[in-house]
Write a protein that binds this DNA or RNA. Structure first.
Lengths: 137, 137
DNA sequence: TCTATTATAGGAGAATGTCTTATGTTAGAT
DNA sequence: ATCTAACATAAGACATTCTCCTATAATAGA
C-alpha cells in the first residue's frame, strides 16, 4: 500500500525554499549553520520540524562557492568553533530575485488551486477529490 | 561571474510541482504524456516553457508504479500510438493531499515574503535588497 | 562519569532534473 | 516524390539534490 507520508504530496519536500530561507536569515545578521537550522525550524513554515542539518551545511558551502556568502571561523567565545556566514552583494541580489520568484510562485499556486476547484465543480471525478479533501481536513 | 539564470532564484527549478500539475490535468479527463506536456506549458505557471518531456514521461511511469494512475495504449484513432493515463482512487487522494499542502505552501511563502520585507525595514542591509529589487522590477 | 546539547561535516544511496539521442507516424510544403 | 516540422514515446547518461547514517569534538548539567 502507498505510504502517503513518503509522497511529495505530504509537503515534506519543500526544501527548495531552504536557500531563500537561509538568505533571508542572513539579511538581518551574520549567523552560523546550527543557528540557521534552529531559526528555520522555528519558522511557521517548518512548524518545529528541523530541516536536515547536513543539507543546510552543504547549502551554505555551495552558496559560498557561488559567491552568495562568505564565511569565517569564530573562536572568540566559549563552546565549539562556529563558522559564521555573511551575505555578499551578490547574495543580496540573489535574495531580491528570490522575492519576485516567490511572488510569482505564490500566484501560480493560487491559480493552480483555483483550476482544481473549477475542475471539481465541472466533473464527476472532482466530487471524490473534494470529498476526500474534507476527510483529510 | 555568477549566472543568475542558472540559480534557483530564477524560478527555473519549480518542477516539484510537476506531479500535482499532472494529477490536476488528469482529474478532468484521461490524457497522454505529450498532451500533458502541452497543457503544462500553456499553464500560466510555465508561460509557454515546455517542461522536460522525458521528465513527464518518467513521472507518469513512476506514478503508475505507485498506483496513482493506470495506463493503456490507444491505437483506435489515426497517428502514433498514445499511452493514455487514468487517475485512480489513490491518485485522487494524493491530489487532495496536494491541495492542502499547496495551500500551506502558499501561506508559508506569504509569511516568508512578509518577514523579508520586515527585515528590510529594520536593517541597513535591507535597503540594498529593496533597492536592487526595484532595479530588477 | 555519563548523557544531552551544541556545532560541523563526510559517505552513500535514492530521488530528481536535464540534456542528448533514438524510434516511428503523419500532415503539409516544396 | 521528397523533405521538413510537428506529433508521440522513451532510454541513456550525467549532474544535482535529498535524506539518512555516521564521525568528530566541546561543553553543561545530572
Amino acid at each position: 500500500m502507498l505510504d502517503f507520508d513518503k509522497c511529495p504530496c505530504s509537503g515534506s519536500n519543500l526544501d527548495r525554499l531552504i536557500q531563500p530561507m537561509i538568505l533571508m536569515n542572513l539579511v538581518q545578521e551574520d549567523l552560523y549553520g546550527y543557528k540557521i537550522v534552529q531559526r528555520i525550524a522555528d519558522s511557521p513554515m517548518f512548524k518545529g520540524n528541523k530541516p536536515d542539518g547536513t543539507g543546510v551545511y552543504r547549502s551554505l558551502k555551495a552558496m559560498e562557492q557561488r559567491g552568495l556568502v562568505v564565511s569565517s571561523w569564530s573562536l572568540a567565545d566559549t563552546g565549539p568553533a562556529k563558522r559564521f556566514y555573511h551575505l555578499t552583494n551578490v547574495g543580496e541580489e540573489c535574495l531580491s530575485r528570490w522575492l519576485s520568484t516567490l511572488e510569482e510562485y505564490r500566484n501560480a499556486i493560487g491559480m493552480l488551486l483555483e483550476d482544481v476547484h473549477k475542475a471539481c465543480v465541472h466533473s464527476n471525478r472532482g466530487k471524490g477529490v473534494e470529498k476526500s479533501r474534507e476527510f483529510i481536513g
